[in-house]
Each structure stands twice: as C-alpha cells, then as structure tokens.
Amino acid sequence: MNNQQIALNDVFVQTKGNLVSNMDGEKVMMSIDTGKYYNLGSIGGRIWELLETPMSVESLIATLTSEYDIDAASCENHVVMFLQQLSKENLIQSGEGVKVNS
C-alpha cells in the first residue's frame, strides 16, 4: 500500500507494537519494532485513536469534519497524506484482512 493511491473506501487499523502517550495535548509514539519516535500532534493523535478499530478513510473524514472546523476536501487531502506517512512507516495496516466492525 505504500506506493499506491489511497481510496475513500480503503480501511485501516493500527499496527500493534507501538507505545503511545499524551504530552501536552499531543500524542507521541514509539515503535517497539524500529525504536523510532513520532509526534502525531493533536489531530494526528485523534486519527490514531479512531484507528484503534478498523475504519474507512471516508468514515475518518466524516468524523473529523464533524469534530473540527474543516471542509471535507481539505480534510481528505490532509488525512490521505497522513495515512500515507503512517503506512510508509508500517504504523497502520490495510487491505483485505482488515474489516470494519459492524
């Protein structure tokens, strides 16, 4: 998925093996596998929380636009870029094995 386009119906979930903590309203994370640290920020942290259970990109955008003052098009651009980064770092997984909970 790292080099592919992310579609609205793609489903993602957190990859296991990361330590996450809140620091001054922002989420920071360390990958157990790589030892890398990440500052997800406040909105990135919210996306991370939402991805605790499998969620489609479309649902992520709908949730974020209802919680923050952002239009859907801008939100989609930011969410897709963020998910691409998380995917590149193997912090999230997607694909056929990931199903949205009903």
Rank of each mutant, 00 (worst) to 15 (best):
Q93S: 15
I43T: 08
E52K: 10
M81Y: 02
S74G: 09
N90V: 10
D69M: 12
K36M: 13
G25C: 08
V28Q: 01
E52D: 14
I43N: 02
L86Q: 07
L19A: 08
V80I: 15
V20D: 02
E89K: 01
K88A: 10
G17K: 09
D69C: 10
S21T: 12
F12L: 08
G44V: 05
Q85C: 05
V79T: 07
V79R: 00
I92Q: 02
K16F: 12
S102P: 04
S74M: 07
K36Q: 10
D71H: 02
T53F: 07
S56K: 12
I6L: 04
Q85W: 13
M29L: 15
V80W: 02
L8D: 03
E58A: 15
P54T: 10
N18A: 14
Q84L: 06
N39W: 05
R46S: 08
L83C: 04
A7D: 01
C75D: 08
E96H: 09
V98N: 06
F12C: 04
M30W: 06
I43C: 00
D10I: 12
L83V: 13
N22I: 15
G17T: 07
D33Q: 14
N2K: 07
E96W: 06
E58Q: 14
G97Q: 11
A72M: 00
S56P: 05
I47N: 06
E96L: 11
V57R: 00
I47Y: 09
N2H: 03
S31V: 07
G35K: 01
T15V: 13
M23S: 01
M1C: 01
L8A: 04
L91Y: 09
M29V: 10
V79S: 00
T65V: 15
L86D: 07
T53Y: 11
I32C: 03
Y68R: 05
T65D: 04
P54N: 06
D33G: 03
K16P: 07
I92R: 00
Q84V: 08
I6M: 01
M23H: 05
L8P: 00
E89D: 15
Y38I: 13
L83G: 02
E67K: 14
E26A: 11
N9V: 09
E76A: 10
K88L: 12
G97E: 14
I47H: 05
I47F: 04
L64S: 13
N18P: 02
I6N: 04
E96D: 13
I32D: 03
M1R: 04
V98W: 06
Q93D: 09
F12Y: 15
T65Y: 11
G44I: 11
V57N: 00
L40D: 04
S42V: 11
S102Y: 00
I70H: 01
K88F: 13
A7G: 00
A72T: 11
G95K: 10
Q4M: 01
S66N: 14
N90C: 13
Q14C: 10
G35E: 10
G97V: 09
G35C: 13
V13S: 02
E67P: 02
D71C: 11
E58W: 09
M23Q: 08
G45W: 11
E96S: 14
L60W: 15
G95D: 10
I92F: 04
Y68N: 12
M1L: 07
I70R: 03
Y38H: 14
D33Y: 08
S74W: 06
D10C: 06
S94H: 13
G35H: 05
G97D: 12
F82T: 14
S102F: 05
M81W: 03
T63Q: 14
